[in-house]
Simulated assay, not measured.
Amino acid sequence: MELEFLGTNAGVPSLQRNVTSMALRMYEERRSFWMFDCGEGTQHQILRSSLKLSKLEKIFITHLHGDHIFGLPGLLSSRSNQGGTTPLQLYGPPGIKKYIDTSLTLSQSRIEFELEVNEHTGGVIFEDGEVRVESRLLEHRIDSYGYRIMEKDKPGSLDLKRMAEYGLKPGPIYGRLKRGESIDLEDGRVLTPADVLGAPKKGRVVTILGDTRPCANVLPLAEQADLLVHEATFLHELHETAHNYHHSTALQAAEAARDAGAKELIITHFSSRYKDMEHLQPLLAEARSLFPKTLLAEELVLFPVTRHED
């Protein structure tokens, strides 16, 4: 599991940075990637990456401001034109379906794959046997949501030495034990998964927030997250400006990570006044003064999601 930023600027693109979009790559886990927000120019950024639109499984939209959604119609059309045929699910606030339907209808764009648009107002918005996604409302000028992606725990590894002691060879029995089933041995004993399995592998938690100023719902979304992605539009010297525009400072992002017990923090959504990586260093220093395990989002750079065992 890796996170790749396709845009890290706030409001409008600059010569150095694109507007908001990021991809959660889960090639080992699901053979696909999920996208969070899709600002204008996102498909150009994808061309510069190793991502393939045919592998895009889900899109999650935090809110309906243009710098987070203007790239959607083009990206959906490109996915179809490039031969993407697998179903695609899109999740976002009320109004996202009207935006997609209107854009595609007026432009006479044809989508050759099944597109399922799910509008939500928070809660559990997706769950299968591997992952659960929850969402909560944040505090912005319009409804903006954060997403908590929770990987489910996986069974521990089989102890091959113990299996050999029981006279068991590789085969279907291994799979049954991994699925949690008990096995009747020839001598009448019952072999349970606990007899031969190591400790379960703890699932990772990734929290990706939309635009927000500090609010109560940030903490439950980010609680004990292995990785928290939080906007840091301004330095804290501009905290009044941040508050008035419903954004956060780098220091406020660090406070959220600390208070939630997050393991790592990546700050993003930078104001255009911070023109390049050199000008972003003060934001990084400010966040690290309170939360040392902070990184700056960099476009087209892979950030591994580390599994932190408590």
Rank of each mutant, 00 (worst) to 15 (best):
I61F: 04
L251A: 11
G203I: 14
M163V: 06
G74D: 15
Y174C: 07
K202P: 02
L64H: 03
L158H: 06
E134V: 02
T233M: 04
K55P: 00
R162M: 12
S157D: 15
H140F: 14
H230P: 00
L160E: 15
F36Y: 14
S77P: 01
E130M: 09
S271A: 08
I96V: 15
S49G: 06
N18C: 06
I266H: 06
P170R: 13
Y145F: 15
H247V: 13
F60K: 08
S80R: 04
L24K: 04
N244E: 14
P193H: 07
P214E: 03
L47V: 00
D310C: 04
V229F: 13
T233Q: 09
G261K: 08
L47M: 07
P94C: 03
E127T: 13
P94K: 13
C215L: 11
V117H: 06
F60A: 01
A222C: 13
T8F: 05
K275E: 12
P155C: 03
G39V: 00
S107D: 14
I267A: 09
V190Y: 11
L221G: 01
R48Y: 08
P13S: 12
E112N: 12
A23I: 12
L235F: 03
G66E: 15
H279I: 00
Q43W: 10
L88R: 02
L47R: 12
G180Y: 09
T85H: 03
T207A: 13
E309D: 13
P292K: 14
K97I: 08
S144I: 02
L47K: 12
L115E: 10
Q281K: 15
F113I: 04
L115T: 12
I96E: 10
T192V: 05
T233V: 11
N9G: 05
K154T: 12
R31F: 03
V206Y: 13
G122F: 13
S135G: 05
K98C: 03
L296I: 06
F303Q: 11
W34T: 03
H239L: 00
D153A: 08
K202E: 15
G11D: 09
R273F: 03
M26G: 04
E165L: 05
A10Q: 13
N18D: 13
T105C: 03
E240Y: 07
R25A: 02
L197P: 01
L72A: 05
F270N: 01
A297G: 12
A199V: 10
D310T: 10
P292R: 14
G210N: 07
L47E: 15
G92F: 11
Q281A: 06
T42D: 00
Y147M: 01
A260H: 05
L6Q: 10
L284N: 06
V124A: 07
L283N: 07
L56C: 07
G39H: 14
H246E: 05
G122R: 14
L106S: 06
L197G: 04
Y91L: 09
R31G: 06
H120S: 05
R273H: 02
N18F: 04
H279P: 00
D276S: 00
L209G: 02
F126W: 15
G261E: 05
D143F: 08
L106I: 10
Q82F: 14
G203A: 10
D37S: 12
R258N: 01
